[in-house]
Amino acid sequence: MAFVPMSVPVPDEAPVSLWRDAWSRLLRNRLAVAGLVMVLVLVFAAAFGPMLTPYDFLSQNLEARNLAPSLSHWFGTDDLGRDVFSRVLYGTRTALIVAVVVTAIAVAIGVALGAVAGFFGGLVDRTIMWFTDMTMSVPNLLLVVVINASLKTPLSQWMEARYLVTLNPFYRETIWVDFLLVFGSMALISWPPYARLVRAQVLTIRSRPYVTAARALGLTNRIILIRYVVPNALGPLIVAVSAGLGSAMVLESAFSFLGVGVNPPTPSWGNMISDGLRVWQHYPHLLAAPAAVLGLATVAFSFLGDGLNDALNPRGSK
């Protein structure tokens, strides 16, 4: 007796795209949404904050020094009578610019090296990964200290010399030296995780049967890269970037605290914390405001990163 194949009811709902699925998973995660909201607030504050506050972050008012938080000065004023809220907002801009630029450079270096290592394999792969491992084993703070100690003086001297020759005021802006050194040295130490991640993705995807099948059909490396590797690597990369942005902000504040980062009077959370620590027994708000905002930013990127990880790499555990 034979069985007649019967038609089976096919699920009639339209297939939800992977990204929309991940997005809905992210929105169901309360902590991730909290992180996302906080990050958006930070971005908004960085973009428009300095324009919205009634005070300039640099303008001093020696008659209103070290004021406690009030309605007119939300976070009080510092020892030069500057509005702390405006300074914290401007510090957000500094922190986010540093974080975004550093992460962008690091991702560019990491993705390029990782993809090359993964695709070519062999000696190229081993050399690049050797280099990656080595970069990862230099304590990052020390490396930045070395770079600063060795490059800051010659760079400033060079800028000064250019100024004397050209009289272009651009060369008088020491802020560019700071930014170049802080950005450059941070990016130089931040790329290895991205390189490792991209290499691992390329290796996994290269060995998948469907890619072998695509090769057998005559697809070129470039098409395989665009069609298979990029979409698969994007999820983990987004998670890594979220974590990277958070740690870049913390690093920036650490360098500013040590005095090798962004120099006063440009406000940065790190140098505000450093200033606040000297007087905090008398004026606790001068420490509390930047420290709390830095802590919040760190937590926000942590929450968002964890949420993205759960949403983009579901392993069915939850």
């Binding site: 007796m1 034979a2 069985f3 007649v4 194949p5 019967m6 038609s7 089976v8 009811p9 699920p11």
Partner: peptide, 25 residues
């Protein structure tokens, strides 16, 4: 060799009567 056509119902999509009815000749 013969095989049974179709697939078993997914959890939550169980038919109201006999679960095998959709595949049963």
């Amino acid at each position: 060799l013969s095989s049974i056509g179709g697939t078993p119902p997914e959890p939550g999509r169980r038919p109201s009567g006999c679960a095998f009815a959709p595949r049963c000749p």
